[in-house]
Simulated assay, not measured.
Amino acid sequence: MAIKRSKVSDISGTELNELSALRVAVKGHSDVDGDRQIDIAPDELPGLKTVNNLVSLTVYYPDGRTEDLFATSAEVSKWIPLDNLKAADNLRGRRKNAAPGFD
Rank of each mutant, 00 (worst) to 15 (best):
A2W: 07
I3N: 09
I3W: 04
K4V: 05
S6R: 13
S6H: 06
I11S: 02
S12N: 08
T14R: 15
L16S: 07
E18Q: 15
E18N: 12
L19Y: 08
L22V: 12
R23Q: 08
A25Q: 15
V26K: 07
G28I: 08
G28F: 07
H29M: 11
D31M: 08
D31G: 09
V32Y: 09
V32K: 01
D33F: 07
D33R: 07
R36H: 14
R36E: 05
R36N: 15
Q37L: 04
Q37C: 07
I38N: 13
I40H: 03
A41P: 01
D43G: 10
L45H: 09
L45W: 15
P46F: 03
P46L: 03
P46C: 10
G47K: 09
G47Q: 05
L48F: 10
K49E: 15
K49G: 13
T50S: 13
V51T: 14
V51S: 14
V51R: 10
N52Q: 11
N53W: 00
S56L: 09
T58C: 11
Y61L: 02
Y61N: 14
R65A: 06
D68R: 02
L69F: 00
A71F: 01
V76H: 00
S77G: 12
K78Q: 10
W79L: 14
I80R: 10
I80Q: 04
P81N: 08
P81W: 01
L82K: 02
N84K: 06
L85Y: 12
K86V: 08
A88L: 08
N90T: 11
L91D: 06
R92H: 09
G93T: 04
R95Q: 12
K96N: 12
N97R: 14
N97H: 11
A99G: 04
A99M: 13
D103Q: 04
